[in-house]
């Protein structure tokens, strides 16, 4: 679980630089939420490309907390990059107005997808690509909006658990307040990831690391002291959310179906 922060930083910066430049793109855009994941992605991008090639956006909804804004601004200041604010309230409110019965969860998903629309449009405006901000814990648990915050062109932090994100952020001296605050999707007042998920990142990361990275079996995990119900709950979450981690399933008709027997890497020709 412990990583060599220096070499991981070098690998991730190389990744951002190469996967951007080789397709002929100069810039990246990142949506800063005020949280640690987007702060880390943005910091790595500035390290990799320089501050002139990183475009940062803060995309609040009317209920977004002031603290999120302050934290996003602090991260932008720390990086020496301008932060452009685009309020999504006026984009999503008309949709909510014609769907008065819409649930909290659906509203959250609409907002996440609205932010995605803004970021992808901004990427076209500045000639860049959208940098992902989903960490490995979220991706495995499916704790994110499909085609919303999970959407990106390249993701430097998708193989880092939340606890590793914190560790790397400390190494990169990201403002302390952002590292130490309780993680939140800030979709409604007082929301925190850990209360919504029902467990702490520290606990789940310890389990995920053993289960996924070290391939411990169910029995081995139990012997290691993990609660049976907790293991089952997490295994089931991983399974149920597999769809969020892949392209839509295509019905096979021909001899060569995309992804099944038409298999190319995305870096084809680069």
């Amino acid at each position: 679980m412990n990583i060599d922060t220096k070499i991981v930083t070098e690998i991730l910066c190389n990744f951002i630089k190469e996967e951007t430049e080789k397709i002929g793109v100069k810039n990246v855009v990142v949506g800063l939420s005020g949280g640690i994941d987007s702060a880390l992605s943005a910091t790595l991008a500035v390290k990799a490309l320089g501050k002139d090639r990183v475009f940062l956006y803060y995309l609040p909804y009317r209920t977004s907390s002031m603290q999120s804004k302050i934290d996003a601004m602090n991260v932008a200041d720390f990086l020496g990059v301008d932060l452009t604010e685009v309020d999504i309230t006026k984009f999503v409110e008309p949709y909510f107005a014609v769907n008065p019965e819409i649930s909290k969860l659906r509203k959250g998903n609409v907002m996440a997808r609205m932010r995605m629309i803004v970021l992808f449009d901004k990427s076209a405006e500045v000639g860049g690509i959208v940098l992902g901000t989903s960490n490995k814990t979220e991706l495995l648990l499916g704790y994110g909006t499909w085609y919303g915050d999970l959407a990106s062109a390249i993701n430097p932090i998708g193989d880092l658990y939340k606890t590793q994100v914190w560790k790397l952020s400390e190494y990169l001296q990201i403002p302390r307040q952002v590292i130490e605050k309780k993680p939140t999707a800030d979709l409604w007042e007082g929301q925190t990831d850990e209360s919504e998920l029902g467990f702490s990142y520290q606990d789940v990361d310890r389990l995920l690391y053993k289960m996924v990275d070290e391939r411990y079996s169910f029995e081995e995990l139990v012997n290691d002291g993990f609660d049976k119900e907790f293991i089952e709950n997490i295994s089931e979450r991983i399974r149920k959310n597999q769809f969020k981690r892949q392209l839509p399933v295509i019905a096979k008709i021909s001899l060569r179906t995309i992804e099944k027997d038409f298999r190319y890497s995305r870096d084809w020709g680069y």
């Binding site: 412990n2 990583i3 060599d4 070499i7 991981v8 690998i11």
Partner: peptide
């Protein structure tokens, strides 16, 4: 490939 980067070993 660079895979398996730990604190105490590359």
């Amino acid at each position: 490939p660079a895979r398996g980067i730990f604190e105490d070993s590359f």
